[in-house]
């Protein structure tokens, strides 16, 4: 199996890696680049814990091959805060206890940011459908939906 040499941009920085043809972007992020914020909950695109954006599009990184990252712009949870300045979603998730075990949280935050970029004023139902691909087993989603609404309102008022 011949390996690929891939040049890409991750969270605004240049990144290079070697990967096998069958290696997923999630494996590359976690095992080759040390970015373990994206989690593997299923490996089949059902749980959303590995959510990242690829050229602005929300994807499950377990369903993307590492080789597909060539020339792309990837955003992960590690790039969500600006230095020590948390993204409003991150801050409100802590304030409003929208996480328990926290393992789904990176994926949910990446997905929620992606929603608010497209739709700054979503209804509860729109949030619930947008996040339907992100499984959370701890919270029952209630506090997550409320936190996204509060962060959205805060972001609109800036």
């Amino acid at each position: 199996m011949k390996n690929f040499h891939v040049s890409t941009t991750i969270n605004g920085d240049d990144a290079e890696f070697i990967c096998t043809p069958d290696e997923t972007l999630l494996d590359v992020l976690r095992n080759r680049l040390g970015l373990t914020g994206a989690k593997e909950g299923c490996g089949t695109g059902d749980c959303g814990a590995c959510s990242v954006t690829l050229n602005g599009r929300l994807v499950c990184s377990c369903l993307v091959l590492g080789a597909e990252a060539e020339g792309a712009e990837i955003e992960t949870i590690e790039g969500m805060a600006d230095g020590d300045d948390l993204h409003p979603l991150q801050r409100v998730f802590i304030d409003k206890a929208a996480l328990q075990c926290g393992v789904c949280t990176p994926g949910i935050l990446v997905a929620a940011r992606s929603l608010l970029e497209k739709n700054p004023e979503p209804t509860d139902e729109e949030i619930r459908y947008w996040l339907a691909g992100n499984l959370c087993r701890c919270t029952g989603y209630d506090k997550i939906i409320k936190a996204v609404q509060i962060a959205a309102a805060e972001m609109r008022s800036v």
């Binding site: 914020g37 989690k39 949870i77 802590i94 996480l99 926290g102 990176p106 935050l109």
Partner: peptide, 14 residues
């Protein structure tokens, strides 16, 4: 909280 919203928290496979 901060570790868990920034992806820094270390889980079993991390």
């Amino acid at each position: 909280g901060i570790d868990k919203v920034t992806g820094k928290a270390m889980y079993g496979a991390d």
